[in-house]
C-alpha cells in the first residue's frame, strides 16, 4: 500500500495552473524525489500531500485515507505520522529550541533521549535553551530537521532540506540520509538540487508544467 498517493491532482496558485492532473505514489520505505525550479509548485504539492491545502481536482491519500473525506481530527492524526519541513522555515519564534522540539515530538522521557541523539547528529546540541529568534538560518533549518525526525515518522516530506546550509552541507546530507534509509522510512524529497536528489532517492521525477515526467 502507498503511504502517499496523489491521483489526478490539479491545483492553481495566483490564477495559474501549477499542478495538472498529477499522479504520484510513494510506497512504504520508498524514497522519491521531485526536482523542480523555483515557483513550479513543490511547496503546494507538499501542502496538498498532508492536507493543508485541498486540491482543485483529484484525490490525495495519506496512509490510504482520502484526505478530502476525513474530518479535521483524523487528518491531524495522519499528519502526526509524518515528519515535514517546509521551505522558508516554520519554527515557533517565541519558543526555545527545546520547546519547539518537544512540540513536535511530545515530552515522554524516551522521546527526550531521541531528541538528544538527533540534536547531536544535526549539530544543534548547544542550542537547546536558545530562543529560536537568536539562531542563524542554517541552525533553524537543522532544528526543523530534528523536529521532523523526532516523532519517529513513517513518511518524511522534506522541502529543500539543505536550504541555508553552506558550510557542513555534506555532513547535513549524511545526517538526513542516516535517518531515512536504515530506518525504513518513506521519503518525499522536494528540491531543485538534482545531484542531491539522485544520491538520496531511488526514484527521481521532474515537475514540469504541473506534470511529473
Amino acid at each position: 500500500m502507498s503511504v502517499l498517493a496523489l491521483e489526478g491532482v490539479s491545483s492553481v496558485a495566483g490564477g495559474v495552473r501549477v499542478l495538472d492532473r498529477l499522479d504520484l505514489a510513494v510506497a512504504a520505505a520508498e524514497r522519491v524525489a521531485i526536482v523542480a525550479g523555483s515557483g513550479e509548485g513543490k511547496s503546494l504539492l507538499s501542502a496538498i500531500a498532508i492536507g493543508l491545502v485541498p486540491p482543485l481536482a483529484g484525490i490525495a491519500r495519506l496512509f490510504g485515507t482520502d484526505l478530502a473525506r476525513a474530518d479535521a481530527a483524523a487528518v491531524r492524526r495522519l499528519r502526526a505520522r509524518c515528519g515535514v519541513t517546509v521551505q522558508g522555515g516554520s519554527l515557533l519564534g517565541e519558543w526555545s529550541v527545546e520547546d519547539n522540539l518537544r512540540l513536535g515530538a511530545g515530552s515522554a522521557a524516551r522521546v527526550g533521549r531521541r531528541i538528544d541523539r538527533l540534536m547531536l547528529d544535526f549539530a544543534v546540541e548547544r542550542s537547546g535553551t536558545a530562543a529560536v529568534q537568536s539562531l542563524s538560518r542554517g541552525e533553524r533549518r537543522r532544528v526543523e530537521l530534528v523536529r521532523a525526525f523526532a516523532r519517529d515518522p513513517e513518511l518524511v516530506i522534506l522541502d529543500e532540506p539543505l536550504d541555508g546550509a553552506h558550510a557542513g552541507r555534506d555532513a547535513l546530507e549524511r545526517a538526513i540520509l542516516r535517518q531515512i534509509a536504515p530506518r525504513g522510512r518513506a521519503l518525499l524529497l522536494l528540491t531543485q538540487d538534482e545531484a542531491f536528489a539522485a544520491r538520496a532517492c531511488q526514484r527521481v521525477l521532474r515537475l514540469e508544467r504541473g506534470r511529473l515526467v
Partner: peptide, 16 residues
C-alpha cells in the same frame, strides 16, 4: 503566526 507560517507548522505536526 500566520505570516511566519507558525500556524501551518502546528498543523503540519498534527496539532490544532
Amino acid at each position: 503566526m500566520s505570516l511566519q507560517r507558525e500556524i501551518d507548522a502546528l498543523e503540519t505536526m498534527g496539532h490544532d
